[in-house]
Design a protein around this nucleic acid. Structure first.
Ligand SMILES: [Mn+2]
Ligand SMILES: [Mn+2]
Ligand SMILES: [Zn+2]
Ligand SMILES: [Zn+2]
Lengths: 181, 181
DNA sequence: CATTTATTGAAAACCATTTTCAATAATTCT
DNA sequence: AGAATTATTGAAAATGGTTTTCAATAAATG
């Protein structure tokens, strides 16, 4: 599907009583020209904007992200600890899922119609109006493992979600765990 | 698989240099006796504890949640805006996924070996050490829709993530959007 | 062009979570 | 068992991402 033009964005906004502002146009443009596979936090976006000479306040960045996620233009993702990430939503970008390293936050995208179908079916089955479905796989990337990241999980464990940030006292055995995401 | 006893928990902790404390035992017990399908935030857990007469500080609650998630005893979930939720992890609870209403936060669990298999395969394919994979489906529950929650997404849209909390000014058309998760 | 009212930026407020630090207590070591 | 070691705790302060406030500005509408 074709990306939004100023006109189509304006129409979309006005239809709901919102207004087209230069700030919103600029922010959408950042996402539209962002290489596939990039995911921006509010702070990321704010940095990019000021690097481009735009002077859009952080408040407006947050407000615009919310607005566009609400309108379905952006998709909100929980990829890292502490802050959300955003990307263009389908159908402007193909719907996909994420595999993310809890150590270094490297993120790999992958598609799966099967998962999308399961998500759709499940929502239907419960009478829900589907908004989004995202399979997020958490793991440790090969590089992080080489870098000495070990996790001996209790025997029998099949799937266990990791956590950064334990107490300071963990420097010995799991030294890099204390690092911030 | 059998749940943790004080002894097995102690062994698990000591193996990594952690210690068994009454607080940790108590917190694990709360999760073990929690009805399937319940998901606790740090604050939830803290409330339950003090209702039970236990006087465990909120700091310790947070620390214990992190520790147990790190050890794979608990699973960390992103079900609502603003705070994480925790539940017993597999294999003590069967691995499953979630369908959640972005309006009222009602959460429905469902199993899917197919998804688990896709997650496992995908992690393997990239050489990742798998920690967890969770399909989270966001939608609007039937009750919320009846309650007048509408969302006309742009035509062609297939999957779009919703957002609470827009500007104050949205009271008119989407009045209940401003409510907190 | 005038009117209405959504939007913006700057600063302050918020609030879930984390950290600090001194006191306490679980483990380990005689 | 008792002493030594050091992980853990609670209370309070700090943090940091996000939200709100509010007066000024500027889209939209007619
Ligand atoms: Mn993506
Ligand atoms: Mn669950
Ligand atoms: Zn990594
Ligand atoms: Zn609902």
């Amino acid at each position: 599907m074709s990306p939004h033009t100023s006109a189509s964005l304006k129409a979309l906004l006005n239809k709901r009583g919102f207004r087209l502002t230069p700030q919103r146009q600029t922010i959408l443009y950042v996402f539209q020209t962002l290489p596939q596979g990039n995911h921006l936090s509010a702070e990321d976006l704010h940095q990019i904007l000021r690097r481009q000479g735009e002077r859009i306040s952080l408040s407006t960045v947050y407000r615009t992200l919310h607005l566009m996620a609400y309108m379905g233009i952006l998709r909100e993702l929980e990829l890292a600890e502490g802050h959300k990430h955003y990307e263009l939503n389908s159908p402007y970008t193909e719907h996909h899922h994420h595999l993310v390293c809890v150590q270094c936050n490297q993120t790999i995208e992958f598609k799966s119609d099967l998962i999308d179908r399961i998500g759709t079916r499940q929502a239907e089955a419960e009478g829900y109006h589907l908004l989004d479905c995202q399979l997020t796989i958490y793991g440790i990337c090969p590089e992080a493992m080489q870098r000495g990241w070990s996790r001996t999980l209790p025997e029998g464990w099949r799937c266990s979600q990791s956590q950064q940030r334990l107490q300071r006292s963990d420097r010995d055995s799991d030294s890099d765990m204390a690092s911030r995401g």
